[in-house]
């Protein structure tokens, strides 16, 4: 770093449970270059200014989904957001909204992980398949149905964006519902009936009020709002069909 670098003020929400009664903002003056991301700004703080700052990160290229934060109030990946876009103003970095703060920018993901486990986020085959039977074949149209939803990196930005999850964390939430749809819509999967029980609940798709901000903030182009809408239709069909005598429906 030399003196010709611009300097941006990064305001970080700090909270160290053993020291601080409540979270507070701390501002750091960070020299930066055109190509530096907000994550790199945080790394500069940690390496050069204040080693006590805690935040999650790993890949630096929007693949791992670890460095999500509220950047000037918007859920974003730190690695996918550039300091130059905020300069000459300061940039404010806070932990993801709607999650409990564990330490500084690190939030507790237990609720999200628990929900993710419940939807069986893997393909459950109709019957065991031997190696001799070969691979599953899928048409381009079948792949198209699941492709965008399989891009989810579990970064939880959509949860920080969702006002309904903020109001009631019992809601399964956008990301997990998008992944649920990814498996339910997969031609190789046979666990749809199990997952529909989650979809059909009030905490399933019916807590969503179609705000759509989840899809706006997704850094991977997933459209959770669309997955939820498709499943509202599926759940409504399931609801009216379950009144029919067994065997007469699907």
């Amino acid at each position: 770093m030399n003196e010709t670098h611009k300097v941006i003020a990064i305001e970080v929400l700090r909270y160290r449970p053993e020291l601080d009664e409540k979270p507070f903002f701390q501002t750091y003056q960070v020299p930066f270059t055109e190509e530096m991301s907000v994550l790199q700004g945080l790394l500069y703080i940690k390496d050069e200014l204040d080693g006590t700052l805690s935040f999650r990160w790993s890949c630096r290229m929007a693949i791992c989904g670890s460095c999500g934060a509220m950047i000037d109030g918007v859920p974003m990946l730190g690695c996918h957001t550039f300091l130059r876009d905020y300069y000459p103003n300061k940039v404010r970095v806070e932990p993801l909204a709607h999650f409990p703060i564990e330490r500084d920018l690190v939030v507790g993901a237990d609720d999200f992980i628990g929900k993710l486990e419940r939807i069986k986020p893997y393909i459950v085959p109709k019957e065991p398949r031997t190696l001799a039977e070969g691979e599953y074949l899928q048409t381009p149209a079948q792949l198209e149905r699941i492709l965008q939803f399989s891009s989810c990196i579990n970064c939880m930005l959509c949860y920080a964006a969702c006002p309904q999850y903020g109001l009631d964390p019992a809601f399964i939430g956008p990301g997990v519902l998008a992944l649920l749809h990814r498996y339910n819509a997969d031609s190789r999967d046979a666990a749809r009936a199990d997952r529909m029980q989650l979809v059909n609940a009030e905490e399933g798709v019916w807590s969503c009020t179609a705000v759509g901000y989840c899809s706006e903030v997704c850094p991977k182009g997933v459209d959770p709002a669309n997955a939820v809408n498709q499943n509202k239709t599926a759940s409504a069909a399931d609801y009216f069909l379950h009144w029919l005598p067994k065997g007469s429906g699907k």
Partner: peptide
């Protein structure tokens, strides 16, 4: 989980 009766209101 309990099935929601929301589909009635949602379809209307």
């Amino acid at each position: 989980m309990k099935r929601s009766n929301a589909p009635i209101f949602w379809t209307l």
